[in-house]
Amino acid sequence: MAFWERKDPRKYKEENANLRVIGDRTAGKTTYMAVLAYWPNANPDSPVQAVVPIGDYGQELIEKARDILEQGLELEPTGLDTTPESIKDYTISINLKNEYSWQKGMKLNINCKDYSGEFFRDLLYKAGDPRLDDYLEDCLLASGILFLIDGTAYKKDTEYAMGMEKFLLGLDRSELNPRPKRRIALVITKCEQPELWVNRYQPNLIVDSRFPQVKQKLENWSKNTGGGVNYFLTSAFGVLGSQYPEPNSRKLERHRLEGTKAVIKDPKHWRPFGLISPIYWLCTGKRHKQLDQI
């Protein structure tokens, strides 16, 4: 075939990923999904052209995002479904602009199940539970995992590392042969908190200092299985002001151990941070320099 015939008239290159969001209770999993679906297409310089939530469940995410962002409400905790098949699988399509004029744009099609935080708790404290096995098997169907950790819950590093180890062992035990390439994005949430915000462009630094044991488990897993691991910092609410930024969130509770619980402070000046970068990496295996900055 001649090269001119190979030209693809489509404007987009499609990349797909089948994901699971996992993390402790109040890590911000549902908020992450909802806010991602409600992405503000405000900045014309942004490489993101549009985020399109697909179908009914996509609409539900939008409604949740409105509750959080426009009304400053908190979401209900996500229930623990009896079987992973009954968990809603959200579909979102993200259109990215081309970086250079000769390039094609990109379409990231993801579907993503937002697991209940109790799954992670059960992973830590339960063993031999058939439901856990079902959930782990469901994870095997995924090409990527979004592992969310509340950035202010650094005292839980040991506990999370234990949970992570159990999760990775569980994955390995039921892993198909030959092993498919899997990617795990460790996503630190609630980075509007000042101690995290100042280092928002340095995910490795934050993870090294706050969650060294979790990181160690992931690195070992990557070495042993060839799976991919990358680290990301995100904030669903963002900050207010540029010179002396303060979190655009109102703390409801700051548990010494449990992390931070907050709602948005000023919905009008909502600018989330870092939400799309992990998705891009999970879809393509590459980091997107511009997406890491926004």
Partner: peptide, 19 residues
């Protein structure tokens, strides 16, 4: 079927295996 995004798959030209 629309609730699962059929019309969006068509209009957005999504050809991923799920669609």
């Amino acid at each position: 079927f629309d609730g699962k995004g059929v019309s969006q798959a068509i209009s957005q030209q999504m050809y991923n295996p799920n669609m």
